[in-house]
């Protein structure tokens, strides 16, 4: 991965602004540049616009609060799922604004993200962190909001090879889930390996930009029998040394 490419420029900009987190829209751009797919989305700053954009991305949609200060959106009532009608979308918009304003104040709320609701799939996590002692580490496991409850994951020091990635898939307790549990189709394991390498491979994001990217949470990555969608991707940055 090139330092001077679009990804590099994006990271440098956020770093120079001394941000600890990429904005959601930047994160989506970065994911796309890494060759990972994200759900279609639009930004809306009013109830009316939200309804309008929803028709463009296609219903059902998800509304997510758009604010630089919020890391875990669902915990403060900033996410609404499975909205189809104008009525549902409008009501959800108001509710999100109300609860987000209550907890963070309205000045830091840009609006909402109107995102195509993704089809049902298996929710996994691909993450990375930087250990003080051992440096960058990649994590794969069962994703969704219960990640810390299940604690079902495998881990490697970065960089990893394709073989490491394949082994990581087999090391979680719920490995049968990936192989097509109880008559379900087998998930796209090649796609998962590709994602793991995009983050943790020799030429992946963590190994290419260790001085910018400190941690990554792709959670959930919804994986299907063919392909995947990164529904939420967070990129944590190192702080500038003062």
């Amino acid at each position: 991965m090139k330092q001077g490419g679009i990804i590099g420029r994006l990271l440098v900009k956020a770093y120079e602004q001394d941000r600890s987190l990429l904005f959601e829209v930047e994160a989506k751009e970065l994911l796309r540049r890494l060759g990972l797919r994200t759900p279609a989305f639009k930004i809306a700053k009013s109830k009316r616009q939200a309804c309008f954009e929803a028709r463009k991305v296609g219903t059902p949609v998800v509304l997510k609060v758009l604010s630089p200060g919020v890391v875990h959106k669902s915990e403060l009532g900033g996410v609404r799922l499975n909205l189809r009608t104008r009525g549902e979308i409008g009501k959800a918009y108001d509710e999100i604004m109300r609860s987000a304003t209550r907890s963070i104040g309205d000045r830091r709320i840009y609006g909402v993200l109107v995102e195509r609701m993704v089809p049902q799939g298996t929710e996994l996590i691909v993450g990375a962190t930087t250990d003080e002692k051992f440096g960058p580490i990649i994590v794969f496991g069962i994703g969704g909001i219960f990640v810390e409850l299940y604690k079902d994951f495998s881990m490697r020091l970065i960089p990893i090879t394709a073989r490491d990635a394949n082994e990581m898939l087999k090391e979680i307790r719920a490995r049968d889930l990936l192989e097509g549990y109880r008559g379900q189709d087998r998930l796209d394991l090649d796609e998962l390996v590709r994602i793991l390498l995009a983050i943790g491979g020799r030429d992946g994001l963590m190994a290419s930009f260790p001085s910018y990217v400190k941690a990554i949470d792709l959670n959930p990555v919804v994986v299907y029998p063919r392909g995947s969608l990164v529904v939420d991707g967070k990129f944590f940055l190192h702080q500038r040394k003062r």
Binding site: H72, G127, F134, V139, K151, R156, A215, F236
Partner: peptide
Amino acid sequence: EVAASHTGALTGDYVIWKTVLSQ
């Protein structure tokens, strides 16, 4: 350190050591 990330919450000191040793 990275308390805000799920990944950080999963990766306690010992888990990392275990990974280092087995890898």
